[in-house]
Design a protein around this nucleic acid. Structure first.
Lengths: 330, 330
DNA sequence: CTATAAACCGCAATCGTTTGCGGAACCCTT
DNA sequence: AAGGGTTCCGCAAACGATTGCGGTTTATAG
């Protein structure tokens, strides 16, 4: 790496380093003439300021940390994508670290973030994360932390989430509107708060608006569990007329089973899911779903971050609205 | 950000900064006693070295640049994921920038990479990238550049690619083995080398091993074009008995059309695709495909990078083998 | 022909580390 | 007791940029 430095430019022009520095950033102290000379040479030599030096000197890294379970996931990738885009437009960089849902690695990654003196952190915690002290330490050092998607229960934290209750309710209402009477609802890991929220809202919407509807609730830890459950339920004599899936992961299992059984949507059974949007559009008819957009969440998180850095008072908890995307399966 | 520094530790212990620095990295000059004192205090105060200062001083950023069209893409995300993992294990960070297939932004991003004094670059160029001078400049500055997936034609560059010819041939051979006689082959952008390679291999495999097979070649720039082509071809009186798709993007369009027309796989028509693996497994029967693994490609690219940095002589072009993953559609 | 203020520029400290070199202090040898 | 090794540590100069402050010109005015 042999980049030109201010010093090099300075000696070539017989000027001082400080003059070069000022000229390059249009400081009023510098005359138009030398300013032009300097920027021309800089252009010629392809001068690029050494970000490390700048950040060291200004004590400002313009770097955001981004902690996710995994990059290779349709939802996180859309989140990351929008954060990256916003960051770049605003002159920030991002440092992405995945923890593979391992709390140990999560801690390790936080260390890396601190070494790099990030100016803010976006974090999606692992299901096993119980000790938040490492995150607290960040805040003590005046590094704003914004939790997203999977967030801690504790109060006093900045969180941006999908509107889980709303998503659950919207799905339920859509089903009720179609006057369905027998629903198989498949949720994810029972111990995650996201599951609980969606389930509560879903169930209580029925209780209030359509108590006569019969709802069977199942929890599936992964795609293949969901698939088996669908197989089991559709084999019954009084099979459900509608299936609800809480997530893409479950939806994949559901679709696998439905296709295996040659079930025709929505004739034989109706289907609605909560999803980021990719999977539902792969099928025909397209699957009706309640959208929870990673992209929107990313943008919201970023706005929140900028507000925090700007010192504005901000709401602690924000959510992105869920919207029903009608398809052909309900 | 109010992290402890070497200076702070030094003054607290009445030692010099250099001693602290050496103690923390087990320099033999430092006695066991003070070494322990120092590391205990460091532990207590949660000292983390300032990466910017370290990198500035050592002129080594331990940072890799990663330039991709988009993060939210099943293939790139698996590539990125494996690069990140390897990098982290080896004490490197990565800086990811997406260019949205815009050559303008690509240039801009290269500037950012240079500002951050990356020690190596992984780049997937845009289809419109014609001017490689910005990349050349990187190499002049002794920053190794490894092109992956979409690579320039030029010689003398380090490239890691999917085995495009092999993939095309494997698909063709699989079709030939099934004694299919009429295939519709849909490829991507005709101007991309990846398209040409896959097409050449595909076609010539037929020419050599089964010249009597009738092949219709189509190019689709996106999902919906592919979909329309399938509609058109399957409406003909002598419709194809097999469809070949070059990529996930095209596969999605194909499947959309097939489902819309209520075509049953593989009874009505056979199907084989080249894919990263996610999409084919969503359907039943699972789609037979030739796997081109982003994860393997990432690992290969990383190895190549480390070899380059280590100064070893390395092969310019590397490829990851394609393998046929049998499904139920051929 | 001097004051006086712009206009323009350089000095030097600083950010937090690393590292070559030199220098005490101590022990051992003869 | 003088010389020669060890052992342990500090000085100070970097790395490349930013910035407060002060100093020189030059122009303008009185």
């Amino acid at each position: 790496m042999n980049n030109p430095t201010l010093k090099k430019l300075a000696s070539m022009l017989g000027l001082s380093v400080s003059t070069i520095s000022r000229a390059l950033k249009n400081h009023p102290d510098i005359s138009e003439a030398t300013r032009k000379k300097v920027s021309e040479l800089a252009q010629l030599l392809d001068y690029e300021p050494n970000a490390n030096a700048v950040h060291l000197r200004t004590r400002n890294s313009r770097l955001f940390g981004l902690s996710v379970p995994s990059i290779s996931n349709n939802f996180y990738e859309s989140f990351i994508s929008s954060i990256e885009e916003e960051a770049r437009k605003n002159g920030f960089s991002i440092m992405i670290l995945q923890n593979g849902n391992d709390a140990q690695i999560e801690i390790q990654n936080l260390k890396l973030f601190r070494q790099n003196r990030i100016t803010g952190l976006f974090a999606c915690i692992t299901p096993k994360t119980v000790d938040l002290s490492a995150f607290d330490k960040m805040k003590e050092m005046e590094v704003p932390v914004i939790f997203f998607d999977k967030v801690p229960e504790a109060n006093g934290l900045h969180k941006v989430c999908l509107a889980d209750e709303q998503a659950g309710r919207l799905a339920a209402e859509a089903i009720i509107r179609k006057k369905k009477k027998k629903v198989l609802a498949i949720f994810g890991d029972e111990h995650m708060s996201i599951t609980q929220k969606r389930k509560e809202a879903f169930v209580s919407a029925f209780r209030e608006d359509s108590p006569e509807t019969e709802i069977s609730i199942q929890f599936a830890l992964n795609t293949s569990e969901a698939r088996q459950q669908v197989h089991a339920y559709l084999a019954k004599k009084d099979k459900p007329d509608t299936i609800f899936s809480m997530s893409d992961e479950i939806l994949i299992g559901v679709m696998k089973a439905l296709q295996e059984m040659h079930i025709v949507l929505p004739t034989d059974v109706s289907l609605i899911s909560i999803s980021n949007g990719l999977i539902p559009k792969l099928f025909h008819p397209e699957i009706t779903y309640v959208e929870t957009s990673g992209e929107k969440l990313g943008r919201l998180a970023f706005m929140q971050m900028m507000a925090l850095l700007g010192g504005s008072q901000v709401l602690q908890d924000l959510t992105v609205d869920a919207v029903l995307i009608p398809g052909g399966t309900l």
